[in-house]
Design a protein around this nucleic acid. Structure first.
Lengths: 265, 265
DNA sequence: ACCATTAAAATCCTATATGATATAGAAAAG
DNA sequence: CTTTTCTATATCATATAGGATTTTAATGGT
C-alpha cells in the first residue's frame, strides 16, 4: 500500500511503448526514462551496448539534460552503468549464475511476503487479487499471445503480493528485483506457462483464503518451479549458441562490443 | 565479492566529510553526492527539509547540473524525495513502524547472508574479518568515543557479511537498507553497546569457524537485540518529546516545516 | 612488421541562460 | 473583516554552448 501503482509501467506497456508515445509523462525526464526502459527491456538497446546521449537527444527530440537524469535513474536500478568521462552502457545480461543469485534472494523474501500478504491484505488488495484471478483464467494457452498474457499476469501478481505485504521495504526490494526479470520475460518467450498458471492460481487461492502458511508454501513452490524453468531455458539457449547460432539480437556476450564498430544507439 | 569496497564511504568518513573534502571524487556528481549524503546522515539537512538546488550550488561552488544528478541518485535510494516543479526534500525520518518493517526485512535476509558468508568466504574476506575483530576488541567502552567506534564496527561487519555472502543481489539489498540506519546511528548515540560488542564477536567467531548454522543464529540474535535496543531508544525519545523537550535539531516531525520560514539549505 | 608518439575527432561533463511553474503577498471586492 | 483575484518573486526544468577528457587514427621510428 505504500508504493504507488501508477508509477510502475506494466510489462505490456513497456514493450509497446516506443511507438505510441503516451501522453501522461509530465516531465521530459519521465518520458526519456520510459523510452529508455522500453528499449532496454525489448533489447532494442543491446545489453552492454554503449548509450550515446547526443544521439538519443536527437532521436527523442529533446535536450541532453533530461536524458542524463533518466540515465542516472536507470543507473541506480543497475539497468545501466556509468563510466565517468566515457559514458553510459546498458547493463550486461544477467548470467546464469546471477539469475541463480536473484532467485536465491527472491526465495528469502517473497514466500514470507506472501504470508504477510495473506495476513495483512486489506479489501482493495483482495479485490485486485480477485480481479487478476479472473483475468488470468481467461488467458489463452499455447501460442505467443499466451506468453505475453502470462508474463503480464506474473508481473502483476508479484507486484500485488509485494505491496500487499504491508511492508514498504519488502515491496520496494521485490520491485527492484523484478525489473531485472523483464528482459528475460522478453527473451525466453518459448516457455510453456501451462503449469505456471496453476501455480498462480494456488497462490491467489491461498491469499484470498487468508492462509499464510499455504500462501508461503505456494509462493515457494512457484519460485522453485520458475527457477527451474528459467535454468532450463538457459540450458537450451547455451546449446543453441554452442551450435553456432546467434540468439535474439546481439546475443549474450558479456564482453565489450565486437571488433565491428560499436552501435552508438 | 561482486561489489566494490571502495565506493561505499564508511560511517566515520561520512560524518567528517564536509570539512575535509576528499580528493578521490572524480566527477562533480560524486562530490555533490558525497557531500549531500554526509549532510543528510549528520542531519545538517533536517529530515523533511527543503533542499534548494541553487543555494547548494553556491555553497559547493559548482553548477546546478551535477547537483540535480546527485539528488536524483539520492532519490532512488529513498533518501530524498522529489516533487515535480517544486523541488527536492530530504526524506522524512523513519517512523517507529517503518523501523520495525526495516528489521522485518533484515531478519529475512541477513541471517541467511551470514550463513552463506560462513560457507563461501574466501581468504581475503576472512582476513578482513579477522582484522575487524582485532579493531573491535581494542575499542573503548562507555563514553561517546565508544559509540562512534561501535557504530563504525557495526557498519563494517554488516558490510563484510553482505559482500562475503557471494550474492550480488543480497549484498546490494543489505547495503541499501543500511543507508537508512546511518542517520539513526547518529541520532541515538546514547545506547550502551557493551552487549552488542559481544554479539559481534559471536558472529565473527562463527564466520571464522565457517559454521553456517552458528553464524545464522548469531546474526539473528544480534538483529533481534538490535531491534529491541532501537525500539527502546524510540520509546525514550517519545517520552522526552512528550515532556516538551525538542530532541536533536529539528526533531522528528513528519510534517512540513513549521510556520517559521523554511530553511532553504 | 610492430610499437610508440602525436594529432584530430568525438563525446562527455560542466556552466550559463532562458522559459515554465508554483508560491507568497498585496490589493480589491463582497 | 473575510475571501478572492491578481501580480511579483523565487525556484525548478530545459536548452544551448564551451571546456575537458577519452578514444581513434595516422605518422614516424625501431
Amino acid at each position: 500500500m505504500t508504493t504507488n501503482d501508477q508509477e510502475l509501467p506494466s510489462f505490456a506497456r513497456l514493450v509497446a511503448l516506443e511507438d505510441a508515445r503516451p501522453a501522461y509523462p509530465q516531465s521530459l525526464v519521465e518520458l526519456a526514462y520510459e523510452q529508455l526502459l522500453s528499449m532496454l527491456v525489448t533489447m532494442k538497446i543491446a545489453p552492454g551496448a554503449h548509450i550515446g546521449i547526443e544521439a538519443l537527444a536527437r532521436k527523442l527530440q529533446i535536450s541532453q539534460t533530461p536524458i542524463r537524469e533518466a540515465l542516472t535513474l536507470l543507473e541506480a536500478q543497475k539497468l545501466a552503468h556509468k563510466i565517468p568521462n566515457v559514458g553510459f552502457r546498458a547493463a550486461s545480461l544477467l548470467t546464469r549464475e546471477e539469475i541463480a543469485d536473484l532467485f536465491e534472494l527472491r526465495l528469502l523474501i517473497e514466500p514470507q511476503a506472501a504470508a504477510f500478504a495473506a495476513e495483512r491484505s486489506d479489501e482493495t488488495a483482495l479485490r485486485a487479487l480477485a480481479k487478476l484471478s479472473g483475468e488470468m483464467s481467461l488467458a489463452q494457452t499455447g501460442d505467443e499471445l499466451a506468453y505475453a498474457q502470462f508474463a503480464e499476469g506474473d508481473a502483476k501478481l508479484h507486484h500485488l503480493v509485494a505491496t500487499a505485504s504491508g511492508n514498504r521495504f519488502i515491496a520496494e526490494t521485490i520491485e527492484g528485483l523484478h525489473v531485472h526479470l523483464h528482459i528475460f520475460r522478453f527473451l525466453f518467450k518459448t516457455n510453456a506457462p501451462s503449469e505456471a498458471v496453476k501455480e498462480h492460481e494456488t497462490i491467489i487461492d491461498a491469499l484470498l483464503a487468508r492462509d499464510p502458511v499455504a500462501a508461503e508454501a505456494a509462493m515457494r513452490a512457484h519460485l522453485h518451479a520458475s527457477r527451474q524453468r528459467m535454468d532450463q531455458a538457459f540450458a537450451e539457449q547455451e546449446r543453441a549458441t554452442a551450435a553456432g547460432d546467434v540468439p535474439g539480437g546481439e546475443g549474450r556476450s558479456p564482453r565489450a562490443p565486437r571488433t565491428r564498430r560499436r552501435r552508438t544507439v
